[in-house]
Amino acid sequence: MPDLSRLDPLKPVLPWLLLALGLVAPFALSAYDLNLLARFMAMGILALGLVLIWGHGGILSLGQGVFFGLGGYAIALHMKLADLPSGEIPDFMVWSGRDSLPFWWIPFSSPAFTIAAILIVPTLVGALFSWAVFHRRVGGTYFALITQALALAFSTLIISRQDVTGGFNGLTDFYSVFGFGLSSPGTGSGLYWVTLVVLCIAFVALRWLLASRFGILLRAARDGENRVRFLGYSPTPFKVVAFAIAAMLAGIGGALFTLHAGVVSPALIGVVPSIEMVVWVAIGGRYSLAGAIVGALLVNLARDAVSSAFPELWLYLMGVLFIFVVTLLPRGLAGLVQGKAA
């Protein structure tokens, strides 16, 4: 590899550069492009969680789509209910022959409950799931396979319960959120700002977390779980907390994505999208928070450009890109900028 150390000065500048671009974008982009960017930024929030668990924790999850979906469906349930005249149920339920709301839909008519659910449900599911696996000292490839199975089971469950989940088509046709009409341009740019702020908060919080003793121990457990255990630490809670935080970020990202995209469906959260999420981070750089955001933005931009011109080509291209990065740039694009893992 050529000597790239002269690029090191870029390292501390990159997050600021991204922030500057994020601040300028609403004034430079069309409403359509801004919406696209906001979607990718929502995915970037999920990508930050993968840096925490995969880059620094050594925990490869091929099931982040599940948590993305939990957040996405939570906000979608709320919007479906908010748009309904009182006493009615969503049209797809009528078509499936239901005459009443399932009981677990009902609390989602409350905005407060919905926001709490977006924050808590993915976190709790992530914590319980990872605890169940990690406390049995299952890890590595086995854990990755179990998360993939989880993604498959979750998307299959949604498809099979069409009468209450909207099935394969997912949930769409949203008109308002928390009283704001989704078709008005002000709501679009407002949601963009919300997404940017959440992304920044997540970035700063994770940066702090990774520099704290928690981050040090997470890396220690990644490199030598037994050594950590025989220094008197129980690595399991550290890994579970990291996984729960990543699940929470995925859920928040999923909810914001659903707001921007106006749809949530199994095709966005199943096995293949879950793997794509890992590819963003591999390409951007799994040890670098800024790198993961760049990866999520660039890969999705490329996906958008390529798949609109050559729909069949995208999966192949992504595969090639993935192999290229994994073999030649193990630290991803961020590795070109950074001298060391941080």
């Binding site: 977390l209 520099a211 704290s212 003793r213 928690f214 121990l217 220094l231 008197g232 630490y233 129980s234 809670p237 550290f238 907390v241």
Partner: peptide, 9 residues
């Protein structure tokens, strides 16, 4: 060495 005491530098 408890995990909840690890949030800090």
């Amino acid at each position: 060495r408890r995990w909840w005491k690890s949030f800090g530098a």
